[in-house]
Amino acid sequence: MLSSILVPLVPVILCIGTGYLIARVGWVRAAAVPDLSNILFLLLTPALLFRTMGQVHLQELDFRPVGLYFASAALLFGATLAWAPFTTATAARALAHTFSNTVMIGVPLISLVYGPAGLVALFTLVSLHSLVLLTAATLVFELAQARAGADDGHSMARTVWQAVRGSIVHPVPLPILAGLLFAQTGLPLPEVVDKPLQMLGAALGPMALLLVGIALAHTRIGAHWRGALRIAAIKNLVMPSTLAALAWALGLSGPAVAVMFTASALPVGANVLYFTQRYGVMQEEVSSAIAISTALALATVPLALAAARLFM
């Protein structure tokens, strides 16, 4: 059993480690990270998302596991807001506690462990992940900012609309929706299009994991490591524990629930940092939390994969 869990993780760890090493020896400089990210998010990710979802029919999708994920995220998000004063800093922590790295780490990991069926379940989550969590976070950030008297006078409705639009008109949800629409036509994807998409999609996994290692090598933990460690521990351990408890209470199980549980155990996603930069709060702590939770995931994800077998 242990070997069946560890075997899929070996290439994940090796790729992240290789990325870290080549960055540390100076082969990839920090200035190159944004360009590498653009290749990942604007080219490789859309290719894999479109090709995978282009073979899925809507009646085959089960949204109950996705609902389970968002319900557990809502519980943890609300608990974080209730535990501390209602400020933008608390909102940033709440988002960091619940927003997973579903693409850079989630896609290659789920593909290795659960195969194509697992990717379909993950992409169903990914198609709504940013839209639901980031829109909810925008509302909370705006309310906290207005309560603090720091509102700059812009319309909250406009801000929320911008968040919704940005979460849909995005290189992750758009190819998922386009692929699903194409699949409903019943037409086969021409080979001249399918083969390049297959090659680009196959490059996503190793490229994403290398970039995780490169980003880790160029991230400084700084003086905020205690707060960052708390965020990482809650994201990597409390979030999946919350989902597991909710699944048990509702009597939900199956491979898709196992995928949701694994996704909930992934480290903090980079979109949280973009939010902190937008609102000018918690930037260094969240940046450190992303690095720590990613490193911590090398130990916690194997535990999550072992526990996920209980849902199969």
Rank of each mutant, 00 (worst) to 15 (best):
R147D: 13
F123C: 00
V140N: 02
G67E: 12
L81K: 05
P85L: 06
M104I: 10
G67N: 14
A89L: 12
V132H: 02
A79V: 09
A117K: 15
V107K: 04
V66N: 00
H170F: 09
D151K: 08
Q145W: 09
S155W: 15
M53A: 07
V169K: 11
S127K: 02
L76Q: 02
L76A: 03
H154C: 09
V56G: 01
H129D: 05
Q162W: 13
V140W: 02
A91P: 04
L58D: 09
A73P: 08
Q59H: 15
F70K: 07
G78N: 07
A71G: 14
A73Y: 00
T135V: 07
A89T: 10
F77C: 06
A144Y: 04
V169G: 02
G166E: 03
L134A: 04
A157F: 10
H154A: 12
Y114D: 01
L139R: 08
L76S: 03
H170C: 07
L131A: 02
V140A: 08
H129N: 06
E60R: 13
I105F: 14
G149N: 11
A117D: 14
H154N: 13
V56I: 12
H170I: 01
R158A: 15
F63V: 10
A71T: 10
T102P: 01
A91C: 14
A121N: 01
G67M: 11
Q145F: 03
I110Y: 00
S100C: 09
A96W: 00
S155A: 14
A117I: 01
L125M: 11
F63R: 04
G54V: 06
T135W: 06
Q162T: 14
L125Q: 02
A74Q: 04
A144T: 11
V103A: 14
